[in-house]
Design a protein around this nucleic acid. Sequence first.
RNA 1: GGAGACGUAUCGAAGUGGUCAUAACGGGCUUGACUCGAAAUCAAGUAGCCUCUCGUGGGCUCGAGGGUUCGAAUCCCUCCGUCUCCGCCA
Length: 430
Amino acid sequence: MIDIKLIRTQPDLVKENIKKKFQDEKLPLVDEVFAMDKEYREAKTRCDYLRGRRNAISKQIGGFMAKGDKDAAAKAKQEVADVAKELQELESREEVLEAEIKKRMMVIPNIIDASVPIGRDDSENVEVERFGEPVVPDFEIPYHVDIMEKFSGIDLDSARRTSGNGFYYLTGDIARLHSAILSYARDFMIDRGFTYCVPPFMIRANVVKGVMSFAEMENMMYKIEGEDLYLIGTSEHSMIGRFMDTILPEEKMPLTLTSYSPCFRKEVGAHGIEERGVYRIHQFEKQEMIVICKPEDSMDWFVKLYMNTVDFFRSLDIPVRTLECCSGDLADLKVKSLDVEAWSPRQKKYFEVGSCSNLGDAQARRLGIRIKGENGNYFAHTLNNTVVAPPRMLIAYLENNLQADGSVKIPEPLRGYMGGKLYLSENQKG
RNA sequence: GGAGACGUAUCGAAGUGGUCAUAACGGGCUUGACUCGAAAUCAAGUAGCCUCUCGUGGGCUCGAGGGUUCGAAUCCCUCCGUCUCCGCCA
């Protein structure tokens, strides 16, 4: 949500931003909000005046009653009744306007950063940088499910029976590898000064609405029947929600946190669930990082955050690249966003394994996350980024560490979490 | 899940239908005075949001939202949360 003052003072800037995101259908909203806001403030001024009158006269009535002056009290009551009548009519208008303005403000996209490349959709995203050589070995790399099955590491048939498509059982060393990667990711971030946190895995509707747009909510969130609770799609939701309606002391900035959680997603959007494999699924686990900081620091943090992910993947010998989200592909709340993609030697292309976003003050404005500064309070900036999200990450891991003899190399940082093993080999029971 | 108690500023807490809610009383914190310094003492200050005709303006917020009333922290309803006991469980 942008500052409504921006619409009051620079409506053209807001419109220009909408055009950059190829959402021209939203252009009329700006003029509508501009007009409604004017009327709203007029109504509010009059309402405030009437409320003031009512308060003052009611106070007088108290005085008359105390003195036993019934006539004066009755006269004052009549006076306040007139005020109340006008107030009631105007108040309902005020409420309607306020709701209509908010409805529109919630869908007007955040102002994107000047550096964001202009483009219609994900086909126009821009590669920024490559890290590591994208190697294609001279032996064939099987589909990731086949690799896992060779280690008796996955059972999709049973999962389909118990839970349906988009779920999985991981077993044996593959399951252990999954946990090992998360544990390593947690320690990796702790070593970089982030504070580890395990958050609630369900949150209320008002928190959901604060951290994401309505469209995202519909396509992602599972609702618990009969309760005001949603399963989180990422720990970012509960981590940012944690600071809802708080005023943080400036000297404590920035807050740098890393969190673990399972993530649940309906995936009803454009792609849907894949037939096979663990690329796009309803349930996965993720180590996440979030930062709450002063506005002037958020772009520096943006770079630091995605570089953490790059470094993490490089430490496991996985080639990656960074891909910047173009204006049309950028979610409405985001100022700037960049995906970290891992190399797939089987598909001979990069695929998304993490996403880093600077939300500016959009989430902070919706949730009421402010910083107490010397010259008054202001909205914080919020950022989030994936450290790692298995089992999707396992695809990249297995494909890049598979050896010609069918074993899978365990890079040094992971060995301590895998019982000291150097390789996974096939000859074991699942 | 059952029964009871409760939710007022930074904390404890008074206020149980009116005429001092920035809010009694007490503590904490900040600044100043006193002091070589500290303690003690004294003084001042210690919410947020919205809005206008920008003034020692006006409005809103007593967990949240509704209702009754000329007027609600106070009465009624719903929800959220906390505590105690019981039940259940990891």
